[in-house]
Simulated scan of single mutants.
Amino acid sequence: MEMIGKPIQSYTIISRDIIKPAIPTPSHLQTYNLSELDLLIGKLYLPMLLLYPNKDSCSLTAQDKTRVLKNSLSQSLTKYNPFAGRLPTLKTPYVDCNDKGVVFLEARSEANLEEFLLSLVQDENLDNLFADDMVCNNSPHSTNIVGIQLNHFACGGVGLAVSMSHLVGDGCTLGSFVNHWASVARYGSADHKEVLPLNPHFIHVPRTDLSE
């Protein structure tokens, strides 16, 4: 894991990691063709930001939270094969589900979560909470499908920022993924009987020419 010390305004990136699926993607699922409608959307990242205040009842340290999120993310990605893949080029009409993984950054803020929420410059700082600036149209040259950034506030609260390329889904897709991830994180295993049953189906568009 690479350790970083680059400040971003009031934020400092403290680690960068790549999280890969716990189980390799089967060979017959390693190419996910995009539809013509998907391609019309272009390179747009859907952002989701989840904020959690620090609770005295939570015994997990910051390191514990990071470990739980990474382990459960790895398990969850086995059902979302395209998320851990890459676009071979910005114009290629398919996702290579090559298990290269999801970028997972950690950042530290000197501000408390409450101060952040009340800040008059909140909108200017929001983009800094997302991995590699993957917000809306900010990263048109990125070939990543999903990016995660876990932001630790001085008060012990955290902000979990998730970015997903609109090429592979919409807001419902993103919400479904985060709900499943949260369920795995809560119960510790994707095989736990209480984990939300989920078998997402990515509609595969037949295409004979993948040379673009």
Rank of each mutant, 00 (worst) to 15 (best):
K6S: 11
K6T: 11
K6C: 11
K6F: 12
P7Q: 09
P7V: 11
I8H: 09
I8E: 11
Q9A: 11
Q9Y: 13
Q9P: 00
Q9V: 13
Q9D: 13
S10R: 11
S10Y: 06
Y11S: 03
Y11F: 15
Y11W: 15
T12H: 05
T12A: 08
T12M: 10
T12I: 15
T12D: 03
T12W: 05
I13W: 00
I13K: 01
I13N: 04
I14N: 04
I14M: 10
I14K: 10
S15F: 01
R16P: 01
R16L: 08
D17Q: 10
I19M: 02
I19H: 00
I19D: 00
I19S: 02
I19V: 15
K20I: 04
K20R: 13
K20G: 04
K20P: 02
K20A: 03
P21K: 05
P21T: 07
I23E: 08
I23G: 00
I23T: 07
P24T: 04
P24E: 06
P24W: 03
P24F: 03
T25E: 05
T25D: 01
T25R: 04
P26S: 03
P26W: 05
S27E: 15
S27H: 13
S27W: 07
S27R: 13
H28K: 14
H28R: 12
H28V: 14
L29T: 01
L29Y: 08
L29M: 12
L29G: 04
L29H: 14
L29K: 14
T31Y: 05
T31I: 14
T31R: 12
Y32C: 04
N33A: 07
N33F: 01
N33M: 03
L34F: 03
S35D: 13
S35V: 01
S35L: 05
S35A: 10
S35R: 09
S35H: 03
E36A: 11
E36W: 10
L37R: 06
L37G: 00
L37Y: 10
L37T: 12
L37Q: 03
L37D: 01
L37A: 11
L37P: 01
D38S: 15
D38E: 08
L40H: 13
L40A: 11
I41H: 08
I41L: 14
G42E: 05
G42M: 07
G42T: 04
G42C: 05
G42K: 10
K43W: 08
K43M: 13
K43N: 09
L44Q: 08
L44S: 03
L44D: 06
L44M: 15
L44I: 13
L46C: 11
L46E: 07
L46A: 03
L46N: 02
L46G: 00
P47C: 11
P47T: 04
P47I: 00
M48V: 09
M48E: 08
M48S: 12
M48I: 03
L49N: 04
L49V: 07
L49C: 09
L49D: 00
L49T: 01
L50T: 12
L50V: 14
L50S: 15
L51W: 01
L51A: 06
L51G: 00
Y52N: 02
Y52G: 01
Y52D: 00
Y52S: 02
Y52A: 08
